[in-house]
């Protein structure tokens, strides 16, 4: 099937089998290998991307379902001039990654939550929901929480360290 995907602001025409998952089309057809496959059954969250602004598991969405949709991946998180997204800076500053394999998924889940809710910094339950939506085996999660809080505060304009 021929479909149109808008990924990180760029249009792509691809011809895919109906069974191909969005994650595989991003990685193999479009060469966007920043989206990782950690479990391929929707649990671990490494493959999380934004579809129409909402975080989804790209391993549980068929590419054909995304025909005409906009998709954002970790490659599209930074500004076009390369200036890192506040989440990227916060993840580094808080040591919220070690091996980095799960990281793109956490970044995109958090990016979706930040864009949906500018007041995320004041909603610890929502932040817990974001951090609790993926598996990380290296960090023990708390650094990821701190990074999301840090970026959310920066977005809100009251920069400061996570408690």
């Amino acid at each position: 099937m021929k479909i149109t995907l808008n990924v990180n602001g760029a249009g792509h025409f691809v011809d895919v089998e109906p069974r191909r998952l969005l994650a595989d089309v991003l990685r193999d057809d479009l060469g966007l290998t920043g989206t990782h496959l950690g479990c391929e059954h929707g649990v671990c969250g490494a493959c999380t991307v934004l579809m129409g602004g909402r975080p989804v598991r790209s391993c549980l969405v068929l590419a054909v379902q995304c025909d005409g949709s906009s998709v954002r991946t970790v490659e599209g998180l930074a500004e076009p001039d390369g200036e890192p997204h506040p989440l990227q800076r916060a993840f580094s500053a808080e040591h919220a990654l070690q091996c980095g394999f799960c990281t793109p998924g956490f970044l995109m889940a958090a990016a979706g939550a930040l864009e949906a809710d500018p007041g995320l910094a004041d909603d610890p339950e929502a932040i817990a929901g974001v951090v609790g939506s993926g598996i990380c085996r290296c960090t023990g999660y708390e650094p990821i929480r701190r990074a999301v809080v840090r970026a959310a505060r920066e977005q809100r304009g009251t920069a400061g360290r996570a408690p």
Binding site: R27, G31, L32, T33, G34, T35, H36, L37, T73, V74, E75, L77, A78, P84, Q88, R89, F91, S92, A93, H95, L97, G100, F101, T103, P104, L107
Partner: peptide, 25 residues
């Protein structure tokens, strides 16, 4: 402070990491 706390972070946070599955051969 440097932009990245670790050198690894520059690529791992931007989708430019290179794991075996990512290598285009």
């Amino acid at each position: 402070m440097a932009r990245w706390a670790r050198r690894e972070d520059a690529r791992l946070l931007t989708g430019k990491g290179r794991y075996v599955a990512d290598i285009d051969v």
